[in-house]
């Protein structure tokens, strides 16, 4: 089953008179359970493409389907709902809410989904265990290392059981050991839960984890293997 289907998507950024064609007509389809890497040099459009898939931004033209739904037709709130229910994000910088503890950060999307208190607690503990951070549950992000923060972000992305997790350069700010640990966890979770992972990277060690590698250049897919 297809989780993502992208048809002839373009995205042109306009800053003053300057136009940047970040995506110039991309077609891509990603099946459920994939562990796929988007690669390509800096500026090739990886982040932009992830934002299209993640309903964070809208294409200039073309169609984006997530879970069979045409998300280009959705309004702001509907896109927020789509993200909350179906898509998890992991960013290069460890995008946690600084005022909330690790536990509360993971809990946040579940609260937004209106999950009951008991079920929620169970789920958060289960996730913290999966990323091996049970002992850090009550720490705030500034009390955690980069690798630990990124693992909290993974747990948070997984929390609402999304169909799809998008990771943009998840290891770029981590050292080799932590980067490997993060990729190992992502791979393990992909195998265990079957959640689809799409991650952008230009780190060869990360690329080696991928079962499918999609290469972008100048806003076009030049290779898919």
């Amino acid at each position: 089953m297809e989780v993502v289907k992208i048809e002839n998507v373009t995205r042109t950024y306009q800053i003053g008179k300057l136009e940047t064609r970040a995506l110039q007509g991309v077609d891509l389809s990603i099946a459920s359970g994939e562990f796929t890497s988007l690669v390509g040099p800096s500026g090739s459009g990886k982040t932009t493409l992830l934002q299209m898939i993640g309903c964070l931004d809208q294409p200039t033209s073309g169609r984006v389907h997530v879970n069979g739904k045409d998300v280009t037709k959705l309004n702001r709130n509907q896109r927020a709902d789509m993200r909350r229910e179906n898509i998890g994000f992991i960013f290069q910088f460890f995008a946690l809410i600084p005022t909330l503890s690790a536990y509360e950060n993971v809990e946040m999307p579940l609260l937004l989904n209106g999950m009951g208190a008991n079920e929620r607690k169970e789920r958060v503990m289960e996730l913290l265990k999966a990323v091996d951070l049970l002992d850090r549950a009550n720490n705030r992000p500034d009390q955690l290392s980069g690798g630990q923060q990124q693992r909290v972000a993974i747990a948070r992305a997984l929390a609402p059981k999304p169909a799809l997790i998008l990771a943009d350069e998840p290891t770029a700010n981590l050292d080799t050991t932590n980067g490997k640990q993060v990729m190992d966890i992502m791979e393990k979770l992909n195998k265990e839960t079957g959640v689809t992972f799409v991650f952008a990277t230009h780190d060869p060690r990360v690329i080696s984890y991928a079962r499918r590698v999609v290469t972008l250049q100048d806003g076009l897919i030049v290779k898919d293997s």
């Binding site: 964070l56 702001r76 229910e85 998890g88 994000f89 946690l96 809410i97 999307p109 937004l112």
Partner: peptide, 16 residues
């Protein structure tokens, strides 16, 4: 700004 972006990314609606 970034924090608001994160909240929005994980699906918090504008009114929240």
């Amino acid at each position: 700004t970034r924090e608001i972006g994160i909240l929005s990314a994980i699906g918090m609606r504008g009114n929240r």
